[in-house]
Nucleic acid binder design. Sequence first.
DNA 1: CGCGGCCTTGATCGCACTCAATTCTAGTGG
DNA 2: CCACTAGAATTGAGTGCGATCAAGGCCGCG
Lengths: 211, 211
Amino acid sequence: MLFADLNESDFELIHAPIDDLVFQPGVALFGEGRSAGHVMTIRAGVVKLVRNAADGRARIVRILKPGDVIGLEALFSPVYDTDAVALSPVSVCKIPITVIKDLSAQSPRLHMRLMERWHRAVKEADDWLAALNFGTARQRVANIILKMRHMEDPTLTTLFSREDMGAMSDLKLETVSREVSRWTKEGVIEPQDKIGRLYRITSIDKLQAVD
Amino acid sequence: MLFADLNESDFELIHAPIDDLVFQPGVALFGEGRSAGHVMTIRAGVVKLVRNAADGRARIVRILKPGDVIGLEALFSPVYDTDAVALSPVSVCKIPITVIKDLSAQSPRLHMRLMERWHRAVKEADDWLAALNFGTARQRVANIILKMRHMEDPTLTTLFSREDMGAMSDLKLETVSREVSRWTKEGVIEPQDKIGRLYRITSIDKLQAVD
DNA sequence: CGCGGCCTTGATCGCACTCAATTCTAGTGG
DNA sequence: CCACTAGAATTGAGTGCGATCAAGGCCGCG
């Protein structure tokens, strides 16, 4: 995935160990401020990137899915910027940063590719925060519901715990719960399970058209 | 500044024109979504980076000062991410992106240097937003006052228009004005002019110790 | 069955927004 | 020098939204 456009000679440069690891939900892949020596690519599962404020409140900065890269900031910074925590069982491929650096030096193509990917990640994170931090609680929750739609079936959406949803949009969990209930009562979404995670969206336009 | 660690042979690679430009307050150096062909370094003055939301409200993402680089995102993206607007008379050095790319290809050292600088810019922007978007209006205004302290004399701070301060911290200008007045009444800051821009901070600890 | 975690719902409160009026400054021209 | 004006800052009164505190319900699990 990360090495999609490497050729065989590039691969020969890799001689350091590359680990495959699995993490259970709630477990941290790494922590903010920890010394950064590795980059990871996600094979399966969902990961949240969490930034911790001075006073203890946590903010979810981005959600990562299979194919995404975690910890690319390690290339420049001695420590990670954020916590990375598994939301579901997660399988990752862990690559020492020295490997990345060696490859970068010898394959300018990969280097450019890496930079592009990083740029995309940063911009996506900005857009994410811009979209979810804007407007009323009603709008924010609507945007979360829209962002979390499945790729295969866009009428299905999987939400997180109300607390995590609050950490994404800077709302309290009670407020998130109220707004989700309101959308449900209005018939815009329909719960597909009993625990408030999976919903079917019946009218996407109403979610998009909040004043 | 940008080319601090270039040697002479590197400089010989530059044969494209590099312009020096001056902008008056309120004038845009470039606009969000405009095709990105140049990078600029600031010689003098202050610049705000503005991100425009869909509904028209503007958000100040970062403040740039002499020595900072604007538009490094042009290396990867065909368009600029933000508007850049002069807050004071600004003098910049405008460099075609082709020059940067040529130099990067031929001087890995400069390339790394550029990436580092960019990484720092992005991280700083994140920290900025994280600090100013957090907590009560009182806390946010306190943080702005602290961020805007002069380097030479840390007891002096220069604020912007109340509207710009609001755009930084996601507050309305009236709220900003109220909180500035409150800090003034409490004797924590003292106005040094009649237009509400320059203040002397008498007790930094009270600004830092807001619950 | 009892327990713990999460979601939901209710009631109340306070902060920041809104609308609106007033003051202050700098700039302009008589 | 003084009136006049435009733009910005300040201040006031009232409202509403989301936070807070608190209680109750639902589900899974030992």
